[in-house]
Design a protein around this nucleic acid. Sequence first.
RNA 1: UGGCACGUAGCUCAGCGGCAGAGCAUCGCCCUGACACGGCGAGGGUCGUGGGUUCAAAUCCCUCCGUGCCAACCA
Length: 870
Amino acid sequence: MSDTTSELPQYYDPHAAFARYAPEWEGSGVYSPRPDAPGLPYSIVIPPPNVTGDLHMGHALNNTLQDLLVRYKRMDGYNAIWIPGTDHAGIATQWIVEKQLRAKGIDRRELGREKFLERVWEWKAHSGGNIVRQLKRLGVSCDWSRERFTMDEGCSGAVRESFVKMHEEGLIYRATRLINWDPIGLTAISDLEVETEENVQGELWSFAYPLSDGSGEIIVATTRPETMLGDTAIAVHPEDPRYVRLIGKTVRHPLLDREIPIVGDAILVDPAFGSGAVKVTPAHDFNDHEVGKRHDLPLITIFTPDAKVNGEGGPYAGLDRFEARGKIKADLTALGLFRGTRLNVMTLPRSQRSGAVVEPMVSTQWFVKMKPLAGPALGAVEHGFTTFWPKQWENTYFAWLRDIKDWCISRQLWWGHRIPAWHCAACAHITVSRDDVVACGSCGSADVKQDEDVLDTWFSSALWPLSTLGWPDRTEELATWYPTSVLVTGFDIIFFWVARMMMAGIHQVGSVPFADVYIHGLVRDENGDKMSKTKGNVVDPLLSIEKHGTDAFRMTLASLAGLGRDLTWSDKSVEVWTRFQNKVWQSFRFLRMHVHELPPAAEPGTMDRWILARAGVAVANVRAALDGYRFNDAVTELHRFVWYELCDWYLEFSKAALYGEDEAAKSAAKHTLWTVYSTVARLLHPFMPFLAEELWQNLPGTSGSVMVARFPRAEDFPAADASLDDVALLQEAIVAVRRVRAEKELGGKVALQLVSRGLGALNAYAAVLDDICNASVVAGDKPDACATVVVNGIEAWIPLTGVLDLDKERERLGGHIAKAQKSVDFLRGLLGNEGFVAKAKPELLASRRAELDGDEARLATLHAALAALG
RNA sequence: UGGCACGUAGCUCAGCGGCAGAGCAUCGCCCUGACACGGCGAGGGUCGUGGGUUCAAAUCCCUCCGUGCCAACCA
């Protein structure tokens, strides 16, 4: 009674807690376990953010969830590690530095490769740590001592090993093929880096090719008239009666004075579409390229790397492809060959990075043969070695792997892993080697030069789970933590990254890189729109953390992260968790008012056993949710337990003991409070680590950090037994009294009585009942003017002499009667249904019968109550 | 064109075979000694449409409508 203050600040300050604990934790070494540390291994490797990047909501979500899992498993006794790192992001980074130089009037080519790369490294050193600093504001528990970069020595070694090995195996080869070319970035790109712009308003432009023998013409249509400079055939359907007799003849190219054969091709040509004749440009169109191969047509490349017409274009040479289009249309029209035009909605392939309209070009590049790699990667998921959460993403994964095409991995860039191949000037032999080559592997000439190209960024990303753990060396880390436990990532890089890691892992070391793949959704704005800089609806996670603190911010993300759905972010949703944070804090202050030292164990009372049993259920539910990656369910469970069971009920129950005279009850309540808050702090730690630590540090008798305390287990708590039914009875009685109080608009000051013959069990809790709702239990018969309540099926009355409003009371009872009648009707119908009675499970049938009995009794009681009002 | 999701209270979502749930918002009453960042109580939905299976459907199957994503694409 003497202590009414708690010495704790009135409000929790998340920023102060962060400032205090984050550096302490990082310096503790807990994040950097040794491979031989005790516990089953648990490992996550971070999806490495680009060095060019700023932390956005996607990163915040992604890393919060990883941290949550690692903190949970670490507390749960696993040898848990989370390896961080960043990605060099080839094209993206080169692009940024080039732009910076251009702003200063410098072209990278003037600078030369060496000097340019120095600039990129400088830039990386200067701003590359930015993302890491930002990540730390999330409170992440990464092992920074093992931080990696995709172009560090280890990763570079892994890349070289992998490339050379796969080349030796014939899985990497060099070939001249039609590839996607980015005319602004001036590099080849992979199929995946081509994005299609939808619903572009285009024009389908028709013109005529005159037959060489002067006997007529063939009309073709195109959305790209300029490509006719590279036409080497006209294709028609071999069974099209209009054209059959023309197959084998030629047409005359009207602008370049060249004869072009007419071929029959059933695959390309749909006779029902347009004129039924198609111009064929094998060097600049993927479908046409296949036709070219089938009919052995020449390939005429008509563009320079920056997509201007080259020497093959005769008078059009030097024109940009779009300028050439206009001029060619004009010239064909002047020649009288124009045959009409119509609007055409189409899609336009664009380079993911530069936005340039992609130009298919014939080019010599390096490729990975994918079919042999895809099969095992497919099988691994089919057989459950790796599981996707949610499972439906496996379909996406399967579909892509089943229809996979070879991967063009060479890029005409400077920033990236240089291809380990040396070209001999003397004999043209290409030597691929793990070590730098000084003499040609074929003729021995010293006149060798390393391939100018670098590898696609994703080539090194594919090796990330291996390289971060030390591969190709056989490290202890690799032995302990590979395969990793889970990959947490977004659906947008299932092809780019997840599938390729699967293939690389299986191929290089014979096992999958992760047991689980958790795919989270996209963080959208409060209207459900995608966040984008151009739309200006981007929420800056750092600002949000500044405003609400790390704990509430993380809790919000977790609360939104379920299985298989995008997340709708709003500031309102953060407020729920700042309020929750406050609730936890205020209730903890209550504990501190009463608990000043570690309370000795004491025989728990009914209320104590009740909350301990409820805590056990909460622990089980939180664990089950986390184990199934249902972060939202875990959060809901914590909220439900802490707010509704602990604060709303137990804390109120405990007051009777804490403020009462019974010393045994008092110490039992103190011990229970201590136990429950010790549990809450530990349950909360993965979600709200700083708040949890603040609780832990201020909980008497604890030592060390909560992050290495044992995660609670359901077995730590007593199971509920029949004696706890009293608590439900008491709760029902309290709610009944409160309802009457609210409905009758009686203030809290008026003491009420609960009169009945059957609620004697409540006498044991008279103090609590009095404390919580200013009511007492009296054995007796129905008074004259009263409200009738039903507690646990037992009729009781609350005398209302002097305050009863008869009309209001009749109305209220009428409502309840209608509801009860509906329920009774339903159950009677159900139980009168022979099919149900015959086929329903016996337990269900019994419980339904019991329900009907209860409801019928309740209905009768209500009718009686109504009658009692006169 | 194909594939995959999704459509449940005003809003955001959970439930996925046994009388519709949560948070926020709304409406009352309360500054009661942890908390007004609070307490107590209440109202609110024929679960997108139409059919089918079942004793029983928000839940399983089919149709359609709407929304979103992914993949392919007719010159």
